[in-house]
Computed example of a mutant assay.
Amino acid sequence: MSSAVPVLDFGSMTQVIHFLMEIDKLKSIQRRTKVIGTQRQENSAEHSWHFAIAAMSLAPYASKEVDIQRVIQMALLHDIVEIDAGDVFVYDLAARAAIHDQEVAAAKRLFGLLPEPQCEHFTALWQEYEEGESADAQFATVLDRSMPMLMNLHNEGQSWIENNVSLEQVLARNGMIANIYPELWQYLFRHLQDAQRKGWLK
C-alpha cells in the first residue's frame, strides 16, 4: 500500500525562496575585521558562519544547560537585521543603542517574509538572543563577542589599531565572558594583555 504523496504548498515555498534571496544581501554588509592574512573586510554572512562553526567546535566546553543546536541557529540568524540596519562597531555603545529600533523593525520585515510557523520561530530565536537571558543566548553572546577578539589576536590587532581601541574598552565590553565561560576568558585575558604589550591595544 503506497503512502499518500504530500501536497506541496507552492505559495509558502515561494515565500521561503524570497526570504533566502533577500538574506543574500548579508554578504554585502562589511565589518571592521579583515579576513586573516588579507586586506579584505569580513562580511556579516562570513562572521555568522564562523560563529556557527565556533558553537559546534566549542560545544564540549558549554554547560549542560546549553542546547548547541539552538546556539547554532542563533548564530546564523543574529545579524540578519544588519541587511536593513547596517553593522555598528561593537565598541560604539551610543550607536548600538540608537540603532535598536531599526533592528527590531528589520527583524519584523525580514522574518515576516517567511510563512508561519517559521516567521514566529526565527523571530523568537532572534529576540531570545537579543535579550541574552537564557543559557543558550548567553553562550551565543560569549562566542559572538569572542570571535572578533580571536580574529584580532591572529591578525596583529588590525581592527583594534585602525579604530584606536584600548584594552580597557575590550575588557569592559567583554568581561561578562568571565562569568559564563571562565576558561575561555582566562585564555583571552592572557592574550589581550600580551596584545597591549605588542601595541595592538592602547
Rank of each mutant, 00 (worst) to 15 (best):
F122C: 13
T123Y: 02
M176W: 07
M147C: 01
F189I: 00
M151H: 07
E130S: 14
E128M: 02
N163G: 00
G157T: 03
F139S: 06
A124S: 10
N174I: 08
D144C: 06
V165K: 12
Q193T: 09
W126E: 00
I180A: 06
A195D: 11
E156K: 14
H154F: 09
A135G: 10
I161R: 14
N152K: 03
L167N: 03
Q169K: 07
G157M: 13
I177V: 15
G175F: 10
Q169C: 05
Y129Q: 13
A137H: 08
S159Q: 04
S166M: 03
E183P: 05
R190D: 13
A140L: 05
I180W: 07
V170R: 01
N164W: 08
T141S: 15
E128I: 06
D144W: 00
N155V: 06
M149H: 01
S134K: 11
K198N: 15
L153P: 02
L153R: 05
E183K: 14
Q138L: 14
F122S: 01
I161F: 08
V170F: 08
L167I: 11
L192M: 04
Y129G: 11
P148M: 01
W185Q: 04
W160V: 05
L153N: 02
L171G: 01
S166D: 06
Q127L: 12
E130G: 03
E128A: 09
G199H: 02
Q138A: 07
A137P: 04
Q138P: 01
R173A: 15
M147L: 14
W185T: 10
S159P: 02
G175T: 07
Q186Y: 01
N179T: 02
A195H: 04
L143A: 11
E168R: 12
L153K: 11
R197F: 03
S166F: 01
E156H: 09
N152W: 04
E131T: 13
E130V: 14
D136A: 10
K198I: 08
V165Y: 05
Y129S: 11
V142C: 03
S134A: 14
W200V: 01
A172L: 02
W185M: 10
E183N: 12
L150P: 00
E183C: 08
D136H: 11
L171W: 05
Y181C: 12
S146K: 03
A195E: 07
G199R: 03
Q193C: 13
D136M: 02
D144Y: 03
G199Q: 02
Y181L: 07
G157W: 07
P182Q: 03
E133D: 09
G157E: 11
H121Q: 13
L153V: 01
A135C: 03
D136Q: 14
